[in-house]
Simulated scan of single mutants.
Amino acid sequence: MRVIISIFLLLPGLIKAQQSLYNQEIKAEVLMKDKGGFLNITGVASNLTNAEQGIRYELAVIKKDTATNNSSKNNQTGRGVLNAKSQAILSTTTVNLNIPDILTIMLLIYDDDDKLIGKDVQRIEPNTFQLEEKKVNTYDGIEIRGLVTRNLRTAPARKFYDYFYKQYKKYQLNGAKVVTINEKFGQGRSTRIEVLVGTEVIYQFFLNPTDDFIKEMGDYVVRLVYQQFEKLKAIEAAINNQ
């Protein structure tokens, strides 16, 4: 009996110690907002360190039917690079609120070695009507900063990305939209690079693996991204001044 009691006494300490392993360098946070019967869910990552961090994330919404105990899972995953002392919106999704299901929302963040470093789990009880709103705390007053993602397969594409990102950091663009570098395969052995700011494709080109071409295109794409950021800032300023 003394052994069983000792185990129960140790459990809170073990749970607390386990929780302290996460969110030390990269903090995971699930934000929720009620939108008229729908629940908007946002997964946010905060880099608390002074160095950039490559991450992989998983935002999962698990619904458990209280009548049958059956569960369903909606999963969103992705990869990216977080700048030092930056915060980024990783993923968003929407589900019905006020339903007879238990909702579990889970954001997991892994480092480049696939080690779990950030974790946040929220639970919504069945037939919930109101939620306590949670605000996004940022370093510079902007919700999303400095996230660059890539979906690449070949060595030349990774070489282009490395050069582009080096220039991106050099000029401290740190834009208010996610920059995505995708590699698309064409006919034969050709490969095409697609550059997005937010959800808009701003440029695409067929990749030549030579160093001179990669540097030339890397510099050109950095200028295009900068111009797109400036354009978006001008549009936002015009809207705010109306």
Rank of each mutant, 00 (worst) to 15 (best):
Q122F: 02
D120P: 00
N151P: 05
R150H: 10
T138G: 03
I109F: 08
K134R: 08
K115M: 05
K115N: 10
K119C: 06
G118A: 00
I142A: 12
G141T: 12
D140L: 09
D120G: 06
D111F: 05
G118W: 00
I144M: 10
N151W: 03
T138F: 06
Y139A: 03
P126K: 11
L116F: 02
D120W: 03
K135W: 10
E125V: 14
D112I: 14
Y139I: 10
D120M: 04
Y110P: 02
E133L: 13
I109K: 11
E125N: 08
P126C: 11
E125Q: 08
E132T: 10
K134G: 06
G118F: 04
T149A: 10
I109D: 00
K135P: 04
K134T: 02
D114R: 12
G146V: 00
Y139K: 07
T149M: 11
L131Q: 04
N151M: 04
I124A: 00
L152A: 07
Y139D: 00
D113E: 06
T138E: 06
K119N: 09
D112P: 12
G141E: 13
L152Y: 03
G118Y: 09
N151Y: 02
I117A: 11
I124H: 01
E132A: 01
V148R: 13
R150M: 12
V121C: 05
Q130F: 12
N137G: 13
K119D: 07
V148T: 06
E133V: 09
T128A: 05
V148I: 02
D140M: 04
D140Q: 05
Y110F: 13
E132C: 05
